[in-house]
């Protein structure tokens, strides 16, 4: 589980040896291992590596192409999008589509709504899952294994299938037409996976550390929030990616629970206003899509490294 604490967050600038070595991100963690890996690399014959690198670049281009086309179409003037000879560039980029999106709809407001939903879900589920993961990994108590299996099973529950009962439940709680109707179920649905994933991170923190903390007079709460929490943070970040995506992307609940109050609408619903199957406003759809994708993209790039190590750590254990 060394990956958990491989601490990309800690610049370790104090150590001269790290300062001098320029390492590609995510390379092997110690010199010995690195040289071994280089040895392996060197032994791969050159033409093969070249072919591999060329294909990696090509695949990257193919994978990125839909996103490129999205952004491109968002900036194209209307005449160029609805042209039967689409060109992969534009000589006259314009903000018209964005303007239309923001004027015709309260897109800013929907953006904010989406953000409120996603951030509430991320924060709440991270905290709750952290506590629960600590409980199931650092304590032995009755029904512990049963609970774990239940979390695992809960993770499999298809949330879409629960739209019907949740609709009535949200109605009875008076949450329909409010963002709460989106936040509450998403917290519940992201918890089991988050707990399951965090388990590995919490487990990785040595128990001796805990003992030492107590011997030093730290309270359990203090250990929890000031020692354990920072150590588990990379795992929390990796976990929050999933809850963020599920909340930010939510389409079905927004469609079903936000019945009449369009001021509580979120981005996916607002986007589809421009997408009418008979006569889609492609420029508007793409501009809206761009606006909707960028925050997630930023979030991903920010947590990218932690995500890699986090996922590796979580599933390895």
């Amino acid at each position: 589980m060394s990956s958990v604490t491989s601490g990309h967050s800690v610049p370790a600038a104090t150590s001269p040896e790290t300062r001098n070595s320029v390492r590609p991100p995510g390379s092997a963690k110690n010199p010995v291992r690195r040289s071994v890996r280089n040895l392996v690399r060197r032994s791969v014959r050159r033409p093969w590596r070249l072919a591999a690198e060329v294909s990696a670049l090509l695949i990257a281009a193919v994978v990125a192409f839909p996103l490129y086309w999205m952004v491109l179409s968002a900036f194209k003037p209307a005449g160029e999008i609805e042209s039967t000879r689409p060109r992969p560039w534009t000589l006259s980029p314009t903000l018209d589509s964005f303007r239309r999106v923001f004027e015709q709809q309260e897109f800013g407001r929907y953006f904010l709504n989406s953000l409120v939903v996603a951030v509430s879900v991320v924060v709440a589920s991270a905290l709750v899952a952290f506590l629960a993961a600590t409980a199931v990994t650092r304590f032995r108590f009755r029904f512990r294994t049963t609970l774990l299996i239940m979390f695992l099973i809960a993770q499999m529950v298809p949330i879409e299938a629960l739209t019907i009962p949740l609709f009535f439940q949200m109605r009875d709680l008076g949450q329909l037409n409010t963002l709460g109707a989106l936040i509450l179920p998403h917290i519940a649905f992201s918890l089991p996976f988050a707990i399951w994933m965090l388990r590995g991170f919490v487990k990785a923190v040595p128990e001796a550390l805990e003992e030492a903390a107590y011997i030093d007079g730290a309270s359990r709460t203090r250990f929890l929030w000031q020692i354990l929490f920072p150590l588990v943070l990379p795992g929390l970040v990796a976990t929050s990616v999933f809850s963020f995506i599920s909340a930010w992307n939510d389409f079905l609940f927004a469609k079903s629970f936000i019945i009449s109050d369009t001021s509580q609408s979120t981005l996916p619903m607002a986007l589809l206003v421009f997408y009418k199957p008979d006569d889609p406003d492609w420029g508007g759809v793409m501009a809206g899509s761009t606006v909707m994708t960028i925050p997630v993209l930023i979030f991903f790039v920010l947590v990218q490294r932690r995500l890699v190590s986090g996922l590796g750590g979580a599933v390895k254990d």
């Binding site: 609709f167 329909l176 037409n177 079903s256 019945i259 009449s260 009418k276």
Partner: peptide
């Protein structure tokens, strides 16, 4: 006043019957 799409009126109006709170 809100303008709702004709295609999805069934879902919308059903939902409104189900939840008087948010119904028009």
């Amino acid at each position: 006043v809100q303008y709702i799409p004709v295609e999805t009126r069934a879902e919308k109006i059903k939902a409104a019957f189900n939840d008087p709170e948010s119904a028009p």
